[in-house]
Amino acid sequence: MALNTPQITPTKKITVRAIGEELPRGDYQRCPQCDMLFSLPEINSHQSAYCPRCQAKIRDGRDWSLTRLAAMAFTMLLLMPFAWGEPLLHIWLLGIRIDANVMQGIWQMTKQGDAITGSMVFFCVIGAPLILVTSIAYLWFGNRLGMNLRPVLLMLERLKEWVMLDIYLVGIGVASIKVQDYAHIQAGVGLFSFVALVILTTVTLSHLNVEELWERFYPQRPATRRDEKLRVCLGCHFTGYPDQRGRCPRCHIPLRLRRRHSLQKCWAALLASIVLLLPANLLPISIIYLNGGRQEDTILSGIMSLASSNIAVAGIVFIASILVPFTKVIVMFTLLLSIHFKCQQGLRTRILLLRMVTWIGRWSMLDLFVISLTMSLINRDQILAFTMGPAAFYFGAAVILTILAVEWLDSRLLWDAHESGNARFDD
């Protein structure tokens, strides 16, 4: 018995066209964080690309023209004298008006014999932002004059995390709450300039795509075929072959399989920071003279006294001054041990922890910024005066060393310790 099946006739004509040209192939790229070699397709503007294995951002879609970056830099340069030299806060102490600005706080630190601690604050609040705007201006002028731009481009990517104007702005709020127990506070004209400078700096850093600047100024022929001998440069993120001198053909720094002496430098910085954190938390970090009496505060006791007036601000200072430094030390110690013992479990967790400490590390400088600003506000000789204690130097040095330890660690070593050939990683 035959089955009668109805015929289905399409209502619209289906047209099949042959592909007349070869589909576009992607360029081969190595991930600078996990060293995976993959094919990167062509990316349009405002599109980002991520590593298929570790999800690290390979290409950032946010990109401004150099002219727009230069305009932002010149605007920031105009704001800087007002943000640093004009009063941020006014207080009335014992019937006398006192003005506080950024430069005055750094000068008070240096004047009291601790120039190293003052230079830490100076670099993060004044030096690094000033280098940022002058570097962008150098790129703008240098591109037109045919100057060598490689050193500036190499420095810009590392400079971003040292620009800490946003953290200093939080420190202004913390210092205001600490001082309000002794005097009446009012915002100064410099505060508005400083807030504007923070906003412009944040926007500029978020749109400063150094890798795209490398592509514009020093374009290189990408690798179009897969080759395990391809290496990625950690300076400019170019994937290719080393030249005859073993250097990256684009930025001219040595092109090595792994960062040289990464573990040794990381261990040295980490152990030194552990040693410095002990006096930083045991010795007094601030000293207040009130009517001839002397009151010393460690980091913890200062947080407890701050909690009596504002528990939320005390929580912020606790996280930045105690929780973050010790968390960074514990995480980095764990990561280094996992590399030495070739741990194969929990790779995803370790990668996330490394990215976390990379982002939060700079916030530990908050305590030094609060001390710097408070020193310029309260300084009335023996009637009422505020000065920093010996722990300030140890704390600042420990924070900087932990930042350097994270920067010096080559994250690809975590993958080397893991089993080879993993296309995915999980716990």
Results as ranks from 00 to 15, higher is better:
Ser305Gly: 09
Val133Tyr: 03
Pro129Lys: 06
Ile8Glu: 14
Tyr182Pro: 01
Thr201Asn: 06
Cys34Val: 00
Gln295Cys: 08
Phe393Glu: 03
Asn4Ala: 08
Thr201His: 06
Lys265Asp: 08
Phe217Met: 12
Leu156Ser: 07
Ala272Gln: 01
Leu270Ala: 08
Ile43Met: 12
Glu157His: 15
Gly146Arg: 08
Ala187Asn: 08
Glu215Gly: 13
Gly127Leu: 01
His261Trp: 01
Arg424Lys: 15
Phe217Val: 06
Ala385Trp: 03
Ile177Gln: 03
Lys13Ile: 14
Trp214Val: 13
Asp426Arg: 13
Arg97Ala: 05
Val317Thr: 01
Trp363Val: 03
Asn143Asp: 14
Ser65His: 08
His46Trp: 12
Ile378Trp: 00
Trp408Pro: 08
Glu42Tyr: 05
Ala100Arg: 02
Gly20Cys: 11
Ala314Thr: 10
Arg412Leu: 00
Gln47Arg: 08
Glu419Ile: 12
Trp267Gln: 06
Lys57Tyr: 09
Arg350Thr: 14
Arg68Gly: 03
Gly146Lys: 08
Thr75His: 07
Ser48Thr: 10
Glu42Ile: 07
Val198Leu: 14
Val152Tyr: 00
Arg68Pro: 02
Ala70Phe: 15
Leu40Trp: 10
Gly235Asp: 03
Gly113Gln: 14
Glu419Phe: 15
Tyr241Ser: 10
Leu79Arg: 00
Val170Lys: 12
Thr349Asp: 05
Gly105His: 01
Pro24Gly: 13
Ala2Ser: 10
Gln295Glu: 03
Gly396Val: 02
Asp381Ser: 03
Ser206Gly: 14
Met109Val: 07
His90Gln: 07
Glu215Phe: 08
Met120Asp: 02
Ser305Cys: 06
Gly171Asp: 04
Pro32Glu: 09
Arg260Ile: 04
Met155Thr: 03
Gly127Cys: 04
Asn291His: 14
Lys265Val: 01
Ala49Phe: 07
Met356Val: 11
Asp243Leu: 03
Asp426Leu: 13
Phe393Val: 14
Glu22Ser: 14
Thr117His: 02
Lys12Ser: 09
Leu290Asn: 05
Pro129Ala: 09
Cys236Ile: 00
Trp267Lys: 03
Leu153Glu: 00
Thr110Met: 02
Met388Thr: 04
Gly396Pro: 03
Arg25Val: 11
Arg247Trp: 13
Gln108Leu: 15
Ala272Leu: 01
Cys248Trp: 00
Gly246Thr: 04
Leu191Gly: 07
Arg247Leu: 11
Met36Val: 14
Thr374Cys: 11
Ile19Val: 12
Asp35Leu: 01
Lys328Asn: 00
Asp63Gln: 15
Asp114Met: 10
Met120Tyr: 13
Arg412His: 01
Val275Asp: 09
His418Val: 09
Gln33Ala: 10
Asp416Glu: 15
Ser364Asp: 00
Gly105Thr: 04
Gly389Asp: 00
Val198Ala: 13
Leu153Val: 13
Phe326Lys: 04
Arg362Ile: 07
Arg30Phe: 05
Pro10Glu: 11
Arg59Gln: 07
Ala2Trp: 11
Gly61Lys: 13
Val121Ile: 09
Ser420Leu: 11
Lys57Thr: 12
Glu212Ala: 15
Gly421Ile: 12
Glu161Ala: 13
Val121Glu: 14
Val195Leu: 15
Arg97Val: 03
Phe369Cys: 03
Gly293Ile: 11
Trp359Val: 12
Ile14Cys: 11
Gln244Lys: 08
Arg294Ile: 03
Ala392Thr: 03
Lys265Cys: 03
Pro24Gln: 10
Phe386Thr: 00
Ser45Phe: 12
Asp410Ser: 00
Met76His: 04
Ser273Thr: 10
Arg250Met: 09
Asp166Ser: 15
His184Asp: 13
Thr5Ser: 12
Tyr289Thr: 03
Met1Ala: 00
Leu337Lys: 12
Tyr289Gln: 01
Ile400Pro: 03
Trp267Thr: 11
Val406Phe: 09
Ser262Gln: 03
